[in-house]
């Protein structure tokens, strides 16, 4: 399947990642609201890379699974990693400062969500949304 990516180094790259995500979501057939959700999720993931890892990459891929179509977003970086994943996934953690909209927010915007993070070895977040 078609896969495209944006390197995140400056804040402008966040905008580029958003644009790519929105175009792909539209092409995949998502409605306005879901396009906005996918774009916001990408925006938050890209912003986390920019703020906490310095640089990384957002990859966007159209996927199918047993007749279902969807969009998969992979955010990866080689930053410091997330020391306490459970804490980061907790509701309320984001609002007390730190990770912007937070991981739980991104998780809610998408259908599937997976984080792999090792201290000093970077973080990879995979989030997928399916067409309903």
């Amino acid at each position: 399947m078609k896969r495209s990516s944006v390197e995140i180094i400056t804040e402008w790259d966040i905008v580029a990642a958003r644009q790519l995500g929105r175009n792909e979501a539209k092409k995949a057939g998502f409605g306005t609201v879901d396009q906005a959700r996918i774009t916001t999720a990408i925006s938050e993931l890209a912003r986390n890379i920019y703020l906490y890892a310095g640089k990384g990459r957002i990859e966007i891929e159209r996927v199918t699974d047993g007749g279902k179509d969807g969009i998969k977003v992979v955010a990866s970086d080689e930053g410091p990693g997330i020391p306490d994943l459970r804490k980061v996934m907790e509701d309320g953690f984001s609002t007390s400062g730190g990770l912007g909209a937070g991981m739980p927010g991104v998780k809610r915007l998408m259908d599937e969500f997976k984080v792999i993070s090792e201290p000093n070895n970077g973080t990879t977040i995979t989030a997928t949304k399916w067409l309903h």
């Binding site: 306005t32 906005a36 309320g92 909209a101 739980p104 927010g105 809610r108």
Partner: peptide, 24 residues
């Protein structure tokens, strides 16, 4: 209206976060 939808996404998940905190 499309612009307003974009504006509301954050409200939406803040609301959901609140609902989940209430359940907790």
């Amino acid at each position: 209206l499309d612009f307003l939808i974009e504006m509301m996404i954050h409200y939406g998940f803040t609301l959901r976060e609140r609902q989940s905190l209430i359940r907790k």
